[in-house]
Design a protein around this nucleic acid. Structure first.
Lengths: 182, 182
DNA sequence: TAGGCCATGTAACCGGTTACATGATTAG
DNA sequence: CTAATCATGTAACCGGTTACATGGCCTA
């Protein structure tokens, strides 16, 4: 999915500046299935404006720099809806953790332990955050996806907790390779 | 994670040609957390060979084109283990489906239904495939990650089945926008 | 007064994909 | 006879990131 569609989608939920779009992609619900950097947000916003898919108004703020607030136009919404009707591509997923787990015997117990414990902590944080999102928001579709996230991530955390020790047990006993790399 | 490490990781499980590496990244367990194309495999293999991290031997086959089979060297394994010891980056995840679900009311029932039913079918296929992987393979760490995958994907499928209808109910009733886009 | 937040933007770079080129063999 | 599988490789392209530039305000 290209950034244009993503930004149109974010703007569909409300007006925002480039800075706020970035924030939403880090803090909001989008965080879990989207990621964008300033280097792509600002140029895309300009292009979108040139194509009349968004409009822009300047807002002067006291004590803060001016900001350019973008709104999705009717043409933008039509375009976004058109994109939504294309069958969605299958989820893209990349995991360094899984590669590490799959090669557990090459590494030390210490490395595996750090990795899985950090993962468990991240997962707990994520669950707490999604719970917040759900309670703060009364938009039904957003609640549907937060429930989905909660369900999957609970299962994930459950597995990690129940199988942490069995993974640790797979860590390399041969310290020659592993220790040398630390 | 860069492709060099990925290829070193794949080669760590056994010698392979560029073609076979690609196959493993589509058919094997790697499929679920990795993706690479020929355009990056072949140049990377050359670079890896130049750096002495892999070695290469030509194999002539009857009835098939010759192939260049690569093996990881001791230096390559050391380098790979060194990379494994860096704390793994958090999983990268992108989902067009979640964006669609979050914007369900902008689209038609037909679109949502197609998307979720296709997702359910993909998930079932995935589960069946991971089950095959698990039964075919007796490598403990690989079994750990296949169990992990099975656990998470079962929960995923369960949610999709139980909440399919509630998502459908969110689809747009205002046909003006939605139908126009079909 | 240092660092963090707010805020916008650009240019260089790069990792990786797409599409193309080539060609033999085998299965339907 | 056509399509698929096996097999290797290159060049053009592109989407997106990183790092940099700029600067005011607020908090510790």
């Amino acid at each position: 999915m290209n950034i244009q569609t993503l930004i149109l989608g974010i703007l569909n939920f409300g007006d925002a500046s480039g800075y706020e779009i970035k924030k939403q992609s880090i803090e909001g619900a989008f965080r879990y299935f989207v990621d964008i950097s300033y280097g792509s947000i600002y140029p895309t916003l300009s292009k979108l404006e040139a194509d009349k898919l968004v409009s822009c108004r300047a807002e002067t703020q006291s004590g803060k720099p001016d900001k350019k607030v973008y709104s999705i136009t009717d043409a933008g919404r039509t375009e976004f809806v058109r994109m939504l009707h294309q069958p969605p591509a299958f989820d893209k997923f990349k995991s360094e953790f899984l590669l590490l787990a799959m090669c557990a015997e090459l590494t030390s117990r210490k490395t595996i332990q750090r990795a899985i414990d950090e993962r468990i902590a991240e997962m707990e944080e994520m669950l707490a955050h999604i719970q917040d999102l759900r309670s703060e928001c009364d938009h039904p579709a957003t609640q549907w996806i937060t429930n989905y996230g909660l369900h999957i991530k609970s299962a994930d955390l459950e597995f990690l907790r129940n199988n942490r020790d069995s993974l640790l047990a797979l860590a390399g006993t041969d310290t020659t390779l592993a220790e040398a790399a630390e």
